[in-house]
Simulated scan of single mutants.
Amino acid sequence: MSHGWRGILAGRYLLITNLGKVIGNGDDTRVWKDPWLSTEHPSTPMGPATERDQDLFVSDLICRGSGDWNIPRIITSPPHLLPQILRLRPSITGAPDSFAWLATKSGTYSVKSGYYVATTLRNAEIRESSSSRRKSSKARAAQSYHLPTLWRTGNSRAPLHPLQLLVTDLVSEHLEAVLQSNIYAIIRVSLSCDITTQQSSPTRKPYFHGSAG
């Protein structure tokens, strides 16, 4: 691509970022496809649009003759846009719609305003790129951080997530408390089992050689 063509595309992109429609009679502006909802920044209505209203023009929302907004008609199609639409003033004389450079109050493009918009967009891209690099660096640092190994299965070691570490500690403390509270009961049961076993076993007399049978 030639240098001149790249410059044309860059200029086109710059214009699109701040180019909007100014409503006159509404005949040339499509409700759902053109940026006409604001005179401060390009704003195209968001749907969903019904199949009947997909090709609706702004002139369909204006009362013929008076040039006022047809509020009942607006309520039936894009009711959520009513507050924004009422901020706009259609042409009373029926002037045609026009494009305006919204980065200036006059609506006319100037080199100074174009340079300002281009610089603002460039700075925003730099900030976004820097933020992405910082997030990527944090992600790599998190991946390279090795957690301590608490147990192993055979010769393999499995590092645990910090939440797993906390749960493991809590479970260990709980088991230790249970064992300590029941250790004496366990000992008593074991001793009673041994005594019962000894008492239930038959007593055998000693055997001497030569004794009468």
Rank of each mutant, 00 (worst) to 15 (best):
L170N: 08
I126C: 04
S77M: 09
V178L: 12
T197P: 01
I75Y: 01
D169S: 14
K135E: 09
D28I: 03
S59H: 03
S91Q: 06
L166Q: 14
P35W: 06
V178P: 00
Y109D: 01
A142T: 11
I187Q: 09
E176R: 12
D60K: 02
L166T: 07
S144L: 10
L56G: 02
T119A: 07
G7H: 06
L160K: 08
V167P: 00
R6M: 10
S113N: 03
P42I: 15
P48N: 07
H80K: 15
P202E: 12
S190V: 05
A103V: 01
K105R: 09
S172K: 07
D28T: 14
Q180M: 04
P42E: 10
V31E: 03
A118R: 02
H41P: 00
Q199W: 04
N18M: 14
T50S: 15
D97A: 09
A118H: 01
I75G: 01
H209V: 08
D97Q: 02
D34E: 03
S181Q: 14
P35G: 07
Y145H: 13
L175N: 06
F99G: 08
E173T: 03
K205G: 07
G213A: 11
S131H: 01
G11D: 13
G210C: 05
A49E: 14
P202W: 14
S144E: 06
E173W: 03
E40H: 15
Q54V: 12
S156N: 11
P159Y: 04
V178K: 09
R73G: 12
F99D: 10
I85N: 03
S66E: 12
T17C: 07
M46S: 13
G154F: 09
D27L: 15
R52L: 15
W69V: 07
T93I: 05
G107F: 06
D60Y: 02
G65C: 02
V117Y: 00
R152Y: 09
S129D: 03
K21R: 14
H161T: 14
S190Y: 04
W5M: 12
I186G: 10
S137D: 02
A100P: 00
Y184F: 10
T50M: 11
V22I: 13
H3Y: 05
A141Y: 02
W5D: 10
S59M: 08
I85W: 00
S137F: 01
Y13D: 10
H41R: 15
N182L: 07
A142D: 11
W151A: 05
A10V: 05
F57S: 12
G213R: 08
G4E: 13
L175P: 00
S190A: 13
Y207V: 15
I92L: 13
